[in-house]
């Protein structure tokens, strides 16, 4: 996908200001600093080289030392007054400051003292530069985990040790597992531990509030994280389910990892890969009033039967009348 105009413009301006501060920086260093490829840096330099003040004669243009460039080093010889670093826009400041404040307020307690000082100093530097604009947003993260479990998980992460977990999953099974902890993913609603599970031989996300107990083991961690896994993605070997729903259940298509969504005048049909039948049953129970069709129909039968059994329990307790 092509880069958006504002992002490219901000980097072009940033490159001039950075190179003014770091004369003779190698192309690779600049690329690393800005998180782009060296090829992109060279493209940016080509653009800067042709930009300047009206007239656009050689003296009007931003200029680089050609010999340095030949040896892979960037040396600015003319910045055309663009050596200043650009301040942050209001929303830009809000986005970063609010994130840092949320981190400090909600996970600060769980941090090592040195980490917490670093977080505080970053927040201070940024607030000094942006003023009070950021007061318009306030985020509170939820780290609803047993403090003891969280401390144990953090210790294992810090020391690179394996963890023993007692965990209750969405299908309501309590299991004992050996895992390599990779990362704690903290959300505003729930928090997860992403890990390699030796017991099941796969990458897993464990909800922190479902870890009943955790213990650091002697074995060192032997696996490394795949690129950030923050959402649950069922794999292609899992069975496919087709749900046809009324338009009012649109949120389902937006929030679930669908393979395919086809709209029609009254609603839509979506395909999902489903790893556990308990999860699927919960989903179908939630969507029941909007369901037009389910394939395979065993899914609807399972949900209907389970619901009928539950209603029978309520009736046997005299908690509902038999008038449905």
């Amino acid at each position: 996908m092509a880069e958006r105009t504002p992002e490219r413009l901000v980097r072009l301006l940033g490159l001039v200001a950075y190179l003014d501060r770091h004369p003779g920086a190698p192309v690779e260093q600049v690329a690393e600093q800005f998180g782009v490829s060296p090829v992109q840096v060279l493209k940016d330099v080509d653009t800067l080289w042709m930009s300047g003040t009206p007239g656009y004669f050689p003296d009007d243009l931003i200029d680089f030392d050609a010999d340095s460039l030949d040896s892979g080093v960037l040396r600015l010889t003319q910045s055309r007054g663009m050596a200043r670093a650009l301040r942050l826009g209001t929303r830009e400041a809000v986005a970063l400051v609010a994130a840092l404040r949320a981190l400090d307020a909600s996970v600060g307690e769980a941090l090592e003292p040195a980490e917490r000082r670093l977080l505080a100093s970053t927040l201070e530097a940024l607030t000094a530069a942006t003023g009070e604009a950021a007061a318009t947003v306030d985020v509170r993260l939820s780290l609803e985990a047993d403090p003891e479990v969280l401390a144990t998980v953090r210790a294992a992460l810090r020391d690179g040790r394996r963890l023993h977990l007692r965990y209750v999953d969405a299908a309501d099974r309590t299991t004992e597992r050996e895992v390599d902890p990779w990362q704690v993913v903290t959300g505003d609603e729930r928090s997860y531990l992403s890990a390699w599970c030796h017991t099941s031989g796969g990458e897993r996300l464990f909800r922190l509030d479902r870890i009943l107990a955790a213990g650091v083991q002697d074995e060192a961690v032997t696996t490394t994280p795949a690129p950030v896994a923050t959402t649950y993605r069922p794999a292609s070997q899992h069975p496919r389910v087709r749900l046809s729903l009324e338009g009012r259940a649109r949120w389902a298509a937006e929030q679930l990892p669908t393979e395919r969504v086809v709209d029609d005048p009254d609603g839509f049909t979506m395909d999902l890969r489903v790893a556990t039948s308990a999860w699927l049953r919960a989903l179908v129970l939630r969507l029941a009033p909007f369901v037009r069709d389910v394939q395979p129909d065993e899914v609807a039968r399972d949900a209907g039967r389970a619901a009928a059994r539950a209603l029978a329990v309520y009736r046997s307790l005299g908690l509902v009348r038999d008038d449905a």
Binding site: A102, L103, R158, T186, G187, D188, S194, T230
Partner: peptide, 11 residues
């Protein structure tokens, strides 16, 4: 990786 193993996300 400054805050070891922490990845905050807001939905």
């Amino acid at each position: 990786e400054q805050l070891l193993g922490l990845a905050p996300r807001v939905h």
